[in-house]
Design a protein around this nucleic acid. Structure first.
Lengths: 209, 209
DNA sequence: CCTACCGATCGGTAGG
DNA sequence: CCTACCGATCGGTAGG
């Protein structure tokens, strides 16, 4: 009986973890399409064919569910954008690699909608609270990573010495983030190519590659 | 009595128009801060110290109120960004003028939050309906205006003949739209200057001015 | 423009 | 993980 309960305990703890993952994943997908505000506990319950208390019980509050969703979309971002290129040589080679994987991620995101990080940024930008703070923190970390990479490229002589890393990183983020709304509202266009062309321009590199 | 009623009729029609304007203005302000989804009839009623039926009665439905809000923010955009420079010489002079007024509008918007057009773009990009369609239409019109201006600048020899007007306009829109989220979440920075620097880069113009 | 009301949905809790 | 429920708020309507 103790054994049985222990096994059942492990099995059900595992099942609970899987349920938790499926809830967060559904929340991320729904956020990518309709935004954070549309992700209600009732809608998730309906999508996942669970009760509302089954959805919220895993997290205790909607805010905790949102925080878990933020962590998931950050992890996916790192896995898709940073991991594939982290082995490249620091400086311009890795910076250009990041830009390519980043643009690919934005143009063909692993969600039914656009990048949930950008969506959430708009959803929380006028508010306060833990979700806003965690999102700002993650964005700041990504910004610092990019600034460091630009700085290395300048020091290596691969970018003009007049380069302002902070300015360039602002431009890079804007250009990549511009892909999602264009894709959703402006009709078909070679957005990936347009973005890469713009990126080379703000880096002060000659066109093409 | 007929006269009195006629006067009262005019006066109250005017009052109704003013009420209508104040509702739409409050909706635009609230949209700029919290997004379209947070603009409920009840919240507007509370802000304006009216009854809910007084708010919605002017429009018949929430969708019509949203459409009226879209028209207002488009009108404000044209007034702030296009009108100040429409007298400039078509081509590069007017294009640079537009970029300046546009960046100023984004960096110091006439709303308590950021530009409602960008906010609404994220709010409706995963949906269908009249608000989505009107927003897409307005965005397309602005895009065509910019493309025309870039094309003129190329034809006048003020921009490189290799310029792809559609690509450049994608980049311009992304850069200006990047100001709002940065302002809200990334802390103090010379965003206006960064944006103008990036704009010159994607236009293929030398730095500074 | 108002009061009074409709059914639906919201986040969350009690109790199991 | 469930059912059953809470008060609050949603968009909208009836009737004036």
């Amino acid at each position: 009986m103790r054994y049985h309960r222990a096994v059942a305990g492990r099995a059900s703890a595992q099942a609970a973890l899987e349920t938790r993952r499926s809830i967060v994943r559904a929340a991320a997908d729904l956020t990518s399409v309709e935004g954070l505000e549309s992700v209600s506990i009732g809608r998730l319950a309906s999508i996942l064919e669970m009760s509302k208390s089954g959805v919220i019980g895993q997290f205790g509050s909607k805010e905790n569910l949102q925080l878990a969703t933020v962590e998931l979309v950050f992890a996916v971002f790192v896995e898709r954008v940073w991991e594939p290129v982290r082995h490249l040589e620091p400086g311009l080679p890795r910076l250009l690699g990041v830009c390519r994987s980043w643009v690919t991620y934005a143009a063909d995101p692993p969600y039914p909608g656009g990048c949930p990080v950008d969506q959430m940024t708009y959803d929380v930008d006028g508010r306060t609270g833990a979700v806003h703070d965690r999102l700002a923190e993650g964005r700041a970390q990504w910004r610092r990573t990019l600034v460091r990479e630009v700085r290395r490229a300048v020091e290596a002589g691969d970018l003009p010495p007049s380069t302002d890393p902070e300015q360039v990183v602002f431009a890079l983020r804007a250009i990549v983030s511009g892909i999602t709304p264009s894709r959703a509202l402006d009709g078909d266009a070679p957005l990936e190519q347009w973005a890469l062309t713009a990126i080379r321009a703000v880096l002060g590199l000659p066109p093409q590659r």
